[in-house]
């Protein structure tokens, strides 16, 4: 095993009015280092001006997603050892505006998340005396979609989002489904309103890369297709049986 490896890191510093460029760093190669450890090494010992986000280093906070050799990954879960001999190219997540270096602007996601009402909607709120019942099977219906850590890898992998920034996108639709399929929730039709317009789920052409890159196996692509089936059924039901009520 070689004892050094080169990282080619994307640099962008708007204050200098400079164009983006790649900077090479040679770092020691350690068996148990992930990409993030290498970046921390650069930050501490070679170049303090490199900016990136990170926090938990255990794949749950969702901060450290980047493009590594053109694939979106969580850098805390990508061992350097698997990228030998390098050089390893590290870029900010694709499809997002870059604030600086490896830091992307993800405010668009938060705006979209709010639009699909990601909270329990009840016809009436019950007092907090007793839990709502939910069997393990009912929990299993939506559990997968509740695992999203908002790491933005799916947005980065989604060409539709790259082409049409209006597109609501994989994670947000999966999270809408997370609530739709929760037996405690009655907000399906309110969310359908937000998602059935042009920027909603109908934009998705099922490329499927979002599900491939998801570190938590949320399967947003599946969530979107199921939502389309549901949306189409609802549309026909409203057309043919306008008096029937949706959940």
């Amino acid at each position: 095993m070689a004892d050094k490896i080169t990282l080619e890191v994307f640099r962008y510093r708007p204050d200098d009015n400079s164009e983006p460029s790649f900077q090479k760093y040679m770092i020691p190669l350690q068996r148990d280092w992930v990409i993030l450890d290498a970046l921390n090494y650069i930050k501490d010992h070679i170049d303090g001006t490199l900016s990136y986000r990170w926090s938990c280093r255990m794949g749950i906070c969702g901060s450290c997603g980047m493009m590594v050799n053109e694939k979106p990954v969580l850098t805390c879960a990508a061992f350097l050892e698997n990228l030998i001999p390098g050089p390893v190219r590290i870029e900010p997540l694709e499809n997002f505006p870059v604030v600086r270096d490896l830091v992307i602007d993800m405010r668009d996601f938060l705006e979209k998340l709010k639009r699909v009402k990601p909270w329990i909607i009840r016809e009436q709120e019950d007092p907090a005396i007793e839990e709502y019942k939910q069997t393990p099977d009912q929990l299993a219906d939506f559990k997968q979609y509740s695992m999203c850590i908002n790491c933005m890898l799916c947005y980065s992998a989604c060409p539709v989002y790259g082409l049409e920034p209006e597109f609501t996108g994989p994670a947000v639709i999966a999270l809408a489904q997370r609530y739709n399929m929760d037996n405690r929730d009655h907000g399906n039709s309110a969310r359908m309103d937000a998602l059935s317009d042009e920027s909603g789920m109908w934009q998705c052409t099922f490329i499927g890369d979002c599900s491939k890159v998801c570190p938590k196996k949320v399967d947003p692509a599946g969530a979107i297709q199921r939502y389309k089936v549901h949306g189409a059924n609802t549309w026909w039901k409203n057309l043919l049986l306008p008096w029937a009520k949706d959940k």
Partner: peptide
């Protein structure tokens, strides 16, 4: 207990018993 039930009402996916209770 009240706080935990409130969080349950807000949708926290607590693990469940077969009968649907937390």
């Amino acid at each position: 207990p009240k706080e935990m039930i409130r969080l349950e009402h807000w949708g926290c996916p607590w693990s469940r018993q077969k009968d649907g209770k937390v």
